[in-house]
Every structure is written in structure tokens, then in C-alpha cells.
Amino acid sequence: MVDYQELSDEELVKKSLDDREVFYYLIKRYESKLMRYINRIASVTHEEAEDLLQEIFIKAYRHLNGFDQRLKFSSWVYRIAHNEVINFAKKRKRGTALIHASNNGDTDNMVLDNLAGEDDVHGNFVAMESREQVWQALMELPLKYREVLVLKFFENKSYREMSDILRKPEGTVATLVNRAKKKFLKIASKYQLEGILQ
């Protein structure tokens, strides 16, 4: 009897191609991570986030044969998530409005909770006094800058992983992170959040 939870992502991918039920274990491994990621980079309602998540996993399943074993599965599935969020924003034709929209209700609280999660938040963020202000400052950033900050400081991705997710050279990613930090600090000064990201 195979204990699927013991298998690596790559082994699960291979087995999922023969038995789609195995794909369930991959979904379980990534559903909460990807849900957090979606909520952090796009202001969407809970229902929209769930729909997006479903689409991401279905797209991942369709493209399983295209998974490059030289990459980490996590980078690959985050890349799909990144593309789906961008497509979602375009489809709704709200583009900037979607990604700059002020959040409210459940999603707001959920994102703020995620921001404060001990397991994945960068030290400087943990130390912040006003989670809501950080969230607002982050949401004022254009998506491309917000996304790199989220990947670097919230998802703790390396530059190589970020390069694989965003399909950009590592140097470009590092430049984007630096620019994003500068822009964030500029916005953060409005909320007296200086010191964050330094």
C-alpha cells in the first residue's frame, strides 16, 4: 500500500498521470498555500478565490505532461496561479481596479490574518503594529511590485524560484524586488510604517 503523503511532488505528478485520484494529494498539499497567494496578490472575494483555485488545479492537471521535471513542482504550480490571476484580472476588464480595489468583509480579515501568520511572514512584517496599514500600503502597489514582495517576503521564495514562477531572469526579479521595496516604503511612509522591509 503506497502512502501518498510520503511521496515527493514529482512522484505524485507521475502517479497522477496514471490515476487521477492521486492528484487529490497534490491539491491537498497546495490548496491553502495557493489560496493565501491568490488573496495576497488580488483583491477577490472568497468565492472568486475558490473558483480561481479550482481553475488553477484543473489547468495544472491538464498540463501535467508539460511539467518540466527540472523545475520544482511548487514553482510550476505557482506559475499557473500567477497566470490565472493575471488572466482573471484581464477577463473582468477591471485590471487595475481589481488589483487596487479596497477590500472589505471576509476577504479583508482573511488577508490580514494571512499577513500575520507566524509561519510565513518575514520578521519585519511580524513586528509591524498595524497589519491593516501594511495591507493597504501593499494594495496600493501595482500588481507586478506587490507580487514580488508577496513571493519574497510572504511566500519566502528564493530568487531562482521567483524567476521560475514569473518567467523572468533572476537579475530582473532582484531589480523588481528592489523597486517594489522602494515604492512600498514610499507608500508606507504615509502610514508611518518606515522600517518595514529594511
Binding site: R20, Y24, I27, Q54, I58, H63, L64
Partner: peptide, 26 residues
């Protein structure tokens, strides 16, 4: 999270007869 996303995804895969694209396509 409201439902079990994993189950919902698998149901949708079955219902819509989603199949992985052939590796030759890639």
C-alpha cells in the same frame, strides 16, 4: 475554506472529462 477543494476539483475533472494533454503536444 468552505468545501473540500480537492474533491470538487476531482468531481469537475470527472464530470467534464478533463484529460491531461498528450505529452506530444508539449
Amino acid at each position: 475554506m468552505k468545501g473540500d477543494i480537492g474533491k470538487q476539483v476531482l468531481e469537475k475533472i470527472e464530470r467534464e472529462r478533463v484529460r491531461p494533454y498528450s505529452k506530444w503536444r508539449f
